[in-house]
């Protein structure tokens, strides 16, 4: 099962990003292989539609779960439609590594 986590950097010790569409990076974590890959978000500076673009990216990567701080109405609608689970964390101080550990630990 693949999970997308919004991240502010491209390393496991980078801080988690509370924004979804405008996160600088996305971390793709696969709990079958235990690998995490980072992708730069090309639309983080976009004028509009960043949430939609980010949701499309998640669908393209065939992830089943997204972890972020909040989801806008458009992103929510799209993710709901594709039955992708949305997980809202409000702790910005946590790192990607810590989240990945929790996901892998089950």
């Amino acid at each position: 099962m693949k999970t997308i986590i919004s991240s502010s950097g491209n390393k496991l010790n980078s801080e988690f990003d509370l924004r979804f569409g405008r996160a600088a990076w996305f971390c793709l974590f696969d709990d079958e292989t235990g690998k995490s890959i980072f992708f730069q978000n090309e639309h983080s500076e976009a004028q509009g539609g960043a949430g939609t673009k980010a949701s499309e990216f998640v669908i393209e990567m065939e992830a089943t779960k997204v972890i972020s701080g909040d989801f806008g109405p458009k992103a929510k609608e799209l993710l709901e439609k594709f039955k992708i689970q949305m997980v809202i964390l409000d702790n910005a101080k946590t790192t990607i590594g810590e989240i990945v550990e929790k996901l892998a630990g089950k």
């Binding site: 709901e80 039955k83 949305m86 409000d90 989240i99 996901l103």
Partner: peptide, 17 residues
């Protein structure tokens, strides 16, 4: 953690812990 459960997920558990 706040999360939703789309109907393809059957397990009623927290996705993180």
């Amino acid at each position: 953690t706040k999360f939703n459960l789309p109907d393809n997920i059957t397990q009623q558990a927290c996705p993180l812990c």
